[in-house]
Amino acid sequence: MIKVENLSKAFGPKLAVNNVSFTVERGEVLGFLGPNGAGKSTSMRMITGFIPPSAGAISVGGFNMLEQPIEAKRLIGYLPENAPSYTDMTVSGFLGFTAEIRGLTGEAKTKAVNRVIEMCFLESVMHQSVETLSKGYRHRTCFAQSIIHDPDVLVLDEPTDGLDPNQKHEIRQLIKRMGEKKAIVFSTHILEEVDAVCSRAIIIDRGQIVANGTPAQLRQKSDYAGAVLLRTSGISAAEIKDKLSQLATVKRTAILKEEMHEVSARVYPQASCPNGELARSIAEVVGREKWKVAELHTEEGRLDEVFRSITLPDTTREAKP
């Protein structure tokens, strides 16, 4: 549904988005990750036709955004960053306006407004003016606006920003449910969201795509992926290190914590070691040596660690040209 090819955007000499390409099909929820200022919002503004790209092509549902913007925009629902809305209008008035501009009139308009009010839990505030609402309600009002015409394509810029944990959960469930029938792109810097909602994720840094895959594939890139965490009591750290280093499956053992009688260690596998083999061999040692084990499990790898290792933090960004 969304096809982005070699998209670039320059603001003066600064390249905000640099040669980005990806596609999103119906039934996919694509998470757009990246540190602040990485080019997420700029990319979304180009996809939705708010700003023209410096180079590259965008097509939505087969319509080229530059050549047939009206047809392309008709297919898109868009939640901009910070969820703007006309604050002097009431919630239902605002939603009615957006329905009308999407070509819905009369009964279809009323139906659409009522549907999104119900979906986004806005019944209690529908006659209130937007400026009297709390941030969470404002956010949901703007979100409701983006789905009012039941679009095939949804572009959501930080849809859960500023919401409380319950509201976050509701919105995530909503995105996940809608993702079964639509093509959705959403940006976030909350990594747990990727696991909760996305079928695929892209990590973007300084305007370029640095990783693209399913959440599981991204996690595999982590150093921790496949490592075994072991927590024992009554044995010294030195003994653990000594015994485990004799195993063929073990590459390295790192002691994480050693206090009183308890030792936590992370055991890294050899590159050739098949999945699960490491834990099995460690369990054998544990059984033979009669160690008292409080915890033994294989780690899946952590997204935040992957994120940190492939994107630069803000502080080093300034220093590097």
Partner: peptide, 14 residues
Amino acid sequence: RSGTMELLLTMPIT
């Protein structure tokens, strides 16, 4: 100022 311009100009209107 309020950012609604982004909303307005991404609607299917010129």
